[in-house]
Simulated assay, not measured.
Amino acid sequence: MTASDSPGGWAGRLLAEGEDPDPRFSLANERTFLAWIRTALALIAGGIGLAVSGDLVADPLRTVLAVGCSATGALAALLAFRRWLTTERALRRAETLPPPALAPYMSYGLAALAVAALVTLLVTR
C-alpha cells in the first residue's frame, strides 16, 4: 500500500510507517487484541452481575467489588488498543516488540479483586 492510497487518521499514519509485516504477525496481534477485549467484556459483565446480586454480598462491599471489576475491565479495554497499536508499529518498523504494559495491571488488579471477594464472602457468611 502506498502513502497516496492509505486511509487518513491514525490508520493512515500507521500504514505510512515502515513496511507491511508478514500478515500472520498482524493477525496474531489482532487475535491478542481481541482476547484482551473479551477479557474486558467479561470483567465488565462480572461487575454488572455483582452490582445486581442482592443476596451474595452486603451492599457497600458489593458496590466496591462491582466498581473494581468494571474499572479493571475498562482499563483493559483502554490499554488493549494501545498495546495493539504499539505492537503493530513495532512490527512495521522491524523493531523489538514492546513489553506488555497491560499484564501487571491485570494481574495485580484481578488478584486484589479476588482477595477482596474471598474476604467478603468469608466475613459475611
Rank of each mutant, 00 (worst) to 15 (best):
L65A: 03
T124P: 00
T2W: 11
A77S: 01
D5S: 15
C69Q: 03
D22T: 08
P60W: 04
A66D: 00
D55Q: 07
L75R: 02
G73R: 02
W36D: 10
V52M: 12
F81T: 11
L50Q: 00
L78I: 08
T120C: 11
G9S: 10
A80L: 01
A16N: 13
R38D: 06
A116E: 00
G54P: 06
R31L: 03
A28C: 06
R24S: 14
A90Q: 08
C69S: 10
T72F: 00
A111D: 03
A58S: 13
G8I: 08
E95S: 14
W10F: 14
L121E: 01
L34V: 10
V57Q: 01
S107P: 03
T39L: 10
P104C: 00
V52W: 02
V67Y: 03
P98M: 15
A90C: 12
T2M: 15
R89W: 07
R93I: 13
A90E: 01
G18M: 13
A90P: 06
L118P: 09
T87A: 13
N29T: 08
T96W: 08
W36V: 02
F33R: 12
A112K: 02
R93A: 15
D59F: 10
L56W: 07
A94W: 09
R92E: 01
A28S: 09
L121H: 12
L113V: 06
A114Y: 00
D55W: 03
D55M: 08
S26F: 08
A111H: 03
A94M: 09
P104V: 05
S4L: 14
T63E: 14
L79Q: 02
L91P: 02
R89Y: 05
L102T: 04
A42D: 05
G8D: 09
A3E: 11
A77W: 02
L43C: 04
L41C: 09
A11D: 07
R38W: 00
A90G: 06
T86L: 13
L102A: 01
S53I: 03
L41W: 06
G8K: 15
T2H: 14
V67S: 00
V119M: 07
A90R: 07
T63R: 12
D20P: 06
P23S: 10
L50E: 00
P98S: 15
A76W: 02
R82D: 09
A11N: 10
R93C: 12
V57A: 05
I44G: 05
L75N: 08
A117R: 07
M1C: 08
S70Y: 00
R125M: 07
A35H: 08
R82H: 11
D22Y: 05
L34A: 11
T63P: 09
D20Y: 13
L75M: 09
T86Y: 12
A101Y: 04
G8E: 09
L110A: 05
E17A: 12
A94D: 12
E88S: 06
D22R: 14
L78H: 04
R31W: 02
T63W: 12
T63M: 04
L97E: 12
N29Q: 07
L91R: 13
A66Q: 00
S4W: 12
T86M: 07
A116H: 04
A28Q: 08
A80C: 01
A116K: 05
A74C: 12
A101K: 07
A35E: 01
G12W: 10
A111Y: 01
T124F: 07
P60G: 05
P60F: 06
M106K: 02
A77C: 05
R24F: 14
S4G: 13
G54W: 04
P21T: 06
